[in-house]
């Protein structure tokens, strides 16, 4: 079966700086894969490249069968990205936001309501403006949008950040449910104890590079020379 994510020597530039300097990575369907590595290693860039938000300028990169080198926009509506920002309109209520983004992603009305209930947002919080929420509550609202949209590939950047114990358990449960429903999860985290417990395997990124021999195989991590020299 074709991997959901297949990178071969993928290079991404942020301005003139090579944020990814030749990443090789496979993620198979139904996997939960943890990206780990130091700050600035390129984890967020891998997730954003998978979402088609950062162009891959060299190497090969395919996500959900879409070649990111030729048409990265085609993959966007099939992935869900939970980044550091909430992606929510601050002046709208939680319910307004989840409904808008859910409808934009062609979610059914039942999915929107179910997602809000799953994230504990169907009570009093539903009618509260996002600007008045705590960081953890915003995180829950962003996750509700993702659950409502049912993406084929979940891309989560520090999904446990800002959440309390119950919220962290909930995120783990959501990842497991997503995979059970046929989706694939790729996430980055510094909370290794919790993350490795939920992940099927771990890929280490260092210096903008990662190398993995094959789907399901152990990750080979390498801290290679500084990225700019490798690309030049």
């Amino acid at each position: 079966m074709e991997p959901v994510v297949s990178f071969r020597g993928a290079v991404c530039l942020l301005g003139r700086f090579p944020a990814l300097a030749g990443v090789t990575l496979d993620v198979g369907a139904g996997e939960i894969v943890l990206l780990q590595g130091p700050n600035g290693a390129g984890k967020t860039t891998v997730l954003r490249a998978c979402a088609g938000l950062v162009p891959v300028v060299d190497g090969q990169a395919t996500v959900l069968g879409v070649d990111l080198r030729t048409d990265r926009r085609a993959v966007r509506h099939r992935v869900g990205l939970l980044g550091h920002a909430s992606g929510l309109y601050e002046d709208l209520t939680v319910a307004d936001n989840v409904r808008f983004w859910g409808r934009a992603g062609r979610a059914r009305p039942g999915d929107v309501d179910a997602a809000m209930a799953r994230l504990g947002l169907d009570g009093r919080l539903a009618d509260v403006a996002v600007a008045r929420l705590s960081a953890g509550q915003r995180r829950r609202a962003s996750l509700a949008v993702m659950v409502a949209r049912r993406p084929a590939l979940w891309l989560l950047d520090e999904p446990h950040a800002a959440l309390d114990q119950e919220g962290r358990d909930l995120v783990d449960g959501l990842m497991a449910d997503a995979v059970a429903a046929g989706a694939t999860v790729l996430f980055a985290s510094h909370e290794l104890d919790r993350a490795t417990a939920v992940a099927h395997r771990t890929v280490t990124i260092a210096g903008g590079t990662a190398s993995v021999p094959g789907v399901g195989a152990p990750a080979v991590a390498a801290a290679l020379p500084p990225a700019p020299e490798r690309v030049r």
Partner: peptide, 10 residues
């Protein structure tokens, strides 16, 4: 707050 990215992914 990331709404631009959310629009592109919507």
């Amino acid at each position: 707050d990331g709404v631009g990215d959310a629009l592109r992914l919507s």
